[in-house]
């Protein structure tokens, strides 16, 4: 559905996106996951046809010319770009008429979408008076007026409350079920779990692209969880086979190279008189995977 071949984008001397090749299939919820400055927004804007690549070739919905396919494409930018002094409903109506829909069509579709996004009770409210989470829902609603086949969302859940975030993702799943292909960017590693496939982005590059399960399976190290109140556990684990030791409240996550290192950690802790029954192997989080991948690139 979308194919990028060696796509780069520079802003002057700054490389926004650096030699990315990627294919996104119909029916996916595809995640672009990475920190600020990784190139997520630049990539989304190129797919949306708002920016053109400096180098490389791309096809979106089969077309090389973005103008042809814009009517099939919905885009929700990161910054709220609707009118604060218009009501929820007025914003939606305005968007509908910009897409050239007639009045009846607009009204019917607006009701559907406001119902879907649970904004119907707030339709008379000024957009400026909505909470962050509701503003994002309104932006989503506006982007859906023309029934896009491909829906691009740039960090729709950043800074949004947990309930709105959960509801937002449930809407994405429902749209996806109805046949919309979704590309969503996020700085939150835990949201990577929610996508069908994920491209991990770092410094303008895609460092890996796979399903969450696939990413986890390609993780080269082992993760141990240690329950310990001992505050200076790190002193004991300053051994070469331990790659990282991170505290999580009353637990530690210890990252080791392999099975032999795992045994060594166990012995070291026992020798220090710390109970090693509190040690168990856990699956890596996608953050663990990202950190390992990002370290390779450096």
């Amino acid at each position: 559905m979308i194919k990028l071949e060696h796509v780069s984008k520079n802003y002057g001397r700054v490389l926004g996106v650096n030699d990315i090749s990627l294919e996104i299939n119909q029916g996916e919820i595809f995640g672009l996951v990475g920190p600020d400055g990784a190139g997520k927004t630049t990539l989304i804007r190129m797919i949306a046809g708002i920016l053109s690549p400096t180098m490389g070739a791309m096809r979106v919905l089969g077309a090389a010319n973005p103008e042809i396919i814009k009517q099939y494409l919905g885009y929700v930018p990161q910054k709220f770009s609707l009118y604060g002094e218009l009501t929820v409903q007025e914003n939606i109506f305005l968007l509908g008429s910009l897409y050239g829909q007639d009045k009846e069509e607009i009204e019917e579709r607006a009701n559907q979408i406001l119902d879907f996004t649970k904004l119907l009770p707030f339709k008379e409210r000024l957009a400026d008076h909505l909470s962050g989470g509701m503003k994002q829902k309104l932006a989503l609603a506006a982007g859906l007026m023309h029934r896009p086949k491909l829906f691009l969302l740039d960090e729709p859940t950043t800074g949004v409350d947990p309930v709105s975030r959960r509801e937002f993702w449930q809407m994405l799943y429902r749209l996806n079920k109805e046949g919309t292909t979704i590309i969503v960017s996020t700085p939150y590693m835990d949201e990577a779990e929610l996508c069908s496939r994920v491209a991990f982005m770092h410094n303008g590059k895609v460092v890996d692209c796979n399903s969450p399960e696939g990413l986890r399976q390609s993780y080269p190290y082992r993760v141990l969880e240690l329950n310990a109140k001992e505050p200076s556990i790190k002193r004991y684990l300053a051994i070469p086979s331990v790659m990282e030791c991170n505290k999580f409240g009353d637990k530690y996550h210890v990252i080791v190279k392999d099975g032999a290192a795992l045994a060594e950690v166990k012995l070291t802790l026992e020798a220090a008189g710390l109970i090693s029954e509190a040690l168990k192997e856990i699956p890596p989080t996608l953050e663990d995977v990202f950190v390992a991948l990002a370290s390779e690139v450096f």
Binding site: G34, P35, D36, G37, A38, P187, M189, H202, E244, N246, K247, E287, F290, V291, A294, S295
Partner: peptide
């Protein structure tokens, strides 16, 4: 840590 990459985030928490 808003907007910082996960590896730096871990170093920061250390």
């Amino acid at each position: 840590t808003g907007g910082v990459d996960p590896k730096s985030r871990r170093m920061f928490w250390d």
